[in-house]
Measured scan of single mutants.
Amino acid sequence: PKDQAKKEIEKALRNGDEEKAKRLAKKYGISDDDWKELKKRVS
């Protein structure tokens, strides 16, 4: 599910692991808009 994916990506971003977050986003098909939203929430 997308919500689970977003949680994992957000966690990776919080850990400062943007490479992992990007890989997860690609793997789960997270859209650019969702990606920006996640980045905003974390920063």
Rank of each mutant, 00 (worst) to 15 (best):
E10Q: 04
K26P: 00
K26N: 09
E37D: 06
K11C: 12
K27E: 12
A21P: 00
W35P: 00
S43W: 15
L24C: 02
N15K: 10
K26Y: 09
D17I: 02
S43I: 10
K36I: 13
A5C: 02
R14L: 07
E19Q: 11
Q4E: 13
K20M: 11
A5F: 13
K26D: 10
G16T: 02
P1N: 14
Y28M: 04
E19F: 08
L24K: 02
K26H: 10
A25S: 04
I30F: 08
K22D: 04
W35R: 01
G29E: 08
G16H: 07
A21Y: 01
V42M: 06
K22I: 13
K7D: 11
E18L: 07
N15T: 09
I9P: 00
E18R: 04
K36D: 15
W35S: 01
A5V: 11
K11F: 11
E18C: 05
K20N: 10
Y28F: 09
K26S: 09
A21V: 02
E10L: 15
K20I: 08
K40D: 15
A25R: 05
S43L: 14
S43K: 09
I9R: 00
D17Q: 11
G29K: 09
E8I: 09
P1F: 12
K40A: 13
K7L: 13
I9G: 00
V42N: 05
A25Y: 03
D17W: 14
R41E: 14
K2W: 13
L24D: 02
L13N: 00
D34I: 05
K11D: 14
P1M: 13
K27Y: 14
K2C: 07
K6P: 03
G29N: 11
D34G: 03
N15S: 12
D32I: 06
K36Y: 12
P1K: 12
D32H: 08
K22H: 09
K11V: 13
K40S: 09
D33Q: 10
E18M: 07
D3H: 11
K26W: 08
G16Y: 04
K40C: 09
D3C: 09
V42K: 02
Y28L: 06
K40Y: 10
K27W: 12
L13G: 00
K40I: 10
A12R: 02
K6L: 15
P1V: 12
V42I: 10
K22A: 09
D34T: 06
G29D: 09
R14V: 05
D33S: 10
E8N: 06
I30S: 01
D33V: 06
N15C: 06
W35K: 01
K27N: 07
L24T: 02
E10K: 04
R23I: 12
L24N: 01
D33Y: 05
K6Y: 15
K11E: 13
W35L: 15
S31P: 03
R14A: 06
R23G: 09
D34S: 03
A5R: 08
G16E: 03
D17P: 02
Y28Q: 02
E10V: 12
E19S: 08
K39C: 02
E19A: 12
D3S: 10
D17V: 02
N15R: 11
A12N: 03
E8A: 10
E19V: 11
A12Q: 04
K7H: 10
K6F: 15
E18P: 04
L38W: 04
A21R: 00
R23N: 10
K11R: 13
D34F: 03
D32C: 06
L13Q: 01
E37A: 07
K2A: 13
K7G: 08
S43Y: 15
K2V: 13
K36V: 09
L38H: 01
E10Y: 14
D33H: 10
G16A: 04
L38Q: 01
A5M: 11
G29H: 09
R41I: 15
A25F: 03
K22M: 13
R41Y: 13
D32L: 05
K2G: 14
L24F: 03
K27Q: 12
K6S: 09
R14C: 06
N15A: 14
A21G: 04
R41A: 15
E18K: 04
E8C: 05
E10W: 08
G16K: 06
Y28G: 02
S43F: 15
A25M: 04
G29F: 07
K11L: 13
V42W: 06
I9C: 03
K22Q: 10
S31C: 03
S43T: 10
E8H: 07
L38F: 03
L13A: 01
R41H: 15
E18Y: 07
E37N: 04
N15M: 13
A25N: 01
K40R: 13
A5N: 07
D3R: 08
D34N: 03
A5W: 13
K11P: 00
E19L: 10
K11N: 13
D34Y: 03
A5K: 08
E37G: 02
R14D: 03
I9A: 02
K7I: 12
A12C: 05
K27D: 09
E10I: 15
Y28W: 10
P1A: 12
R41N: 15
A25Q: 06
K11A: 14
V42Q: 04
R14F: 05
Q4K: 11
I30C: 05
K27C: 06
I30N: 00
E37H: 03
Y28S: 03
D32W: 13
K36M: 12
N15P: 00
E18F: 06
A12S: 05
S31Y: 02
R41T: 15
K40T: 08
R23E: 12
L38R: 00
K2D: 14
P1G: 13
K36C: 10
L13T: 01
L24H: 02
G29M: 09
D33G: 07
W35A: 01
K6I: 15
V42A: 10
G16F: 05
L38G: 01
A12L: 15
R14K: 07
K39H: 06
D17F: 14
E37Y: 03
K26I: 14
A5L: 10
K6A: 10
A12K: 02
K22C: 06
K39S: 05
R23S: 11
I30T: 02
D17L: 10
